[in-house]
Design a protein around this nucleic acid. Structure first.
Lengths: 236, 236
DNA sequence: TTTTAAATAATAGTATTACTATTCAATATA
DNA sequence: TATATTGAATAGTAATACTATTATTTAAAA
């Protein structure tokens, strides 16, 4: 029943082998607990990255990793829950990164700049020895993350606190914003806008560039520039 | 093959019975051309609103409107294309609204304010006598719109210009932004951020309020306030 | 007016997907 | 050693996505 984990304490203890406890309501059997479980997550990230969440099925995943469909169903009730698990891991990981990477920075503005960079750049591959391919994970988050909450069942799903890692991440960035500009009335909304817009603008700049201004500007760093401008103007 | 329709001309001619020509590549048979076709769209909006896009199937839609699955398949290859059709209609309708409702306004800042209001409020029910329930359409757009482009097949789908209405809408708001603040370097990205953030913040404020600041502020008009603040600070 | 062609929709399927009941095999515990 | 307990596979079912074919209506040509 460990739902609210005190991250600040655990980060430094567990820096080497990075593993986050994910809310028990998301899975049937803890994937971290068995070798097969860990393989399911690892291969799921690869397969969703390759074929997209709509085409992803437990049958295909089982085939890919030489196990059976039914075995995967013993870990997750459906593919939606598996995606939710991956995203819980990602949100926890991002909160960890925000805490660890901002700690040595003194200037609050520089801290906020670093946050924008964290969400607009590729993920650092070697921070924490987790087994998952960070870049593919990041691509999945960009393309598939909204699908975990944009469903008819949000209310019921939300009751088990499965979005808590996202809310915690949002609250942490929100705190930083409040420190930087105590009078700003929308710190939580600006945090989620920062995260969601990072995803949508990264997606658009690759696949639907006319919905962005990427053609007029250098592609790498475009979203970073745009979001830094947006955030710091909002916090004047 | 009528892809680029000159909207400025058509708006006033067609003000009474509002119908937009949707890109031919989206459908197999034009739903506007037959009574059954029109019923498909109307009932699809109702059913997607009720059960959500994931649970929506052609079988259920056929049952709902007393026709057969196969008949619906003669209009659309799959439910994704049907959603794309609905969104093309919505984007064209929003561009129409932007043009018509901004025309009488003189002040450019007031025009931009009106744009934010258009995307954060319920849709005006009686502008144009279209048969579709505007509020349900708006709810669908909030919850389902990103699912039409967040798919593995974006590139191929995009080749047939099926996202043109969204790009046109974005370009029109972008022009307004450029008039208001010629030096701003991200007019397209700000336009899509405005639209996408309106959707996500409206969704979050209802279902995941902790991801927003809605608890501290009056609920109706919250997203409007937030976005007006964000947009006009960005354009200082 | 009759015949033929085209358009429209329904019937009856198949393949895939999502999910489950049951069985088998391997450990761990008493 | 006997017996729970756990982990994973077999073998299904129901629903979903999609299609080939047939029937019916409408329109055009002879």
């Amino acid at each position: 029943m460990l739902i609210s984990v005190n991250f600040e304490c655990r980060y430094f203890i567990m820096d080497y082998s990075l593993s986050f406890k994910v809310n028990e309501h998301i899975y049937l059997r803890d994937p971290e607990g068995t070798e097969l479980g860990k393989q399911i997550i690892k291969h799921a990230i690869e397969l969703i990255y390759e074929i997209g969440f709509e085409h992803f099925t437990f049958k295909k995943l089982a085939l890919e990793m030489n196990t059976t469909e039914a075995s995967i169903y013993r870990y997750f009730t459906n593919k939606h829950r598996l995606l939710l698990y991956i995203l819980n891991w990602y949100w926890s990981y991002m909160e960890y990164l925000v805490v660890v990477q901002l700690e040595p920075i003194q200037d609050i503005r520089a801290k906020l700049e670093r946050v924008v960079e964290l969400f607009t750049h590729e993920l650092p591959e070697r921070v924490g020895q987790s087994d998952y391919n960070k870049n593919r994970l990041h691509q999945i988050v960009i393309s598939e993350s909204s699908k975990v909450y944009l469903v008819k069942e949000v209310k019921e799903i939300n009751e088990n606190e499965v979005f808590k890692p996202y809310k915690d991440l949002c609250a942490r960035i929100s705190d930083l914003i409040k420190t930087y500009q105590p009078n700003y009335p929308f710190p939580h909304s600006l945090s989620t806008t920062l995260i969601e817009t990072a995803h949508s603008q990264l997606f658009f700049s690759t696949y639907l560039p006319k919905l962005t201004d990427v053609q007029d500007l250098p592609k790498p760093g475009f979203v970073e520039q745009y979001l830094k401008d947006l955030v710091f103007k909002a916090l004047v």
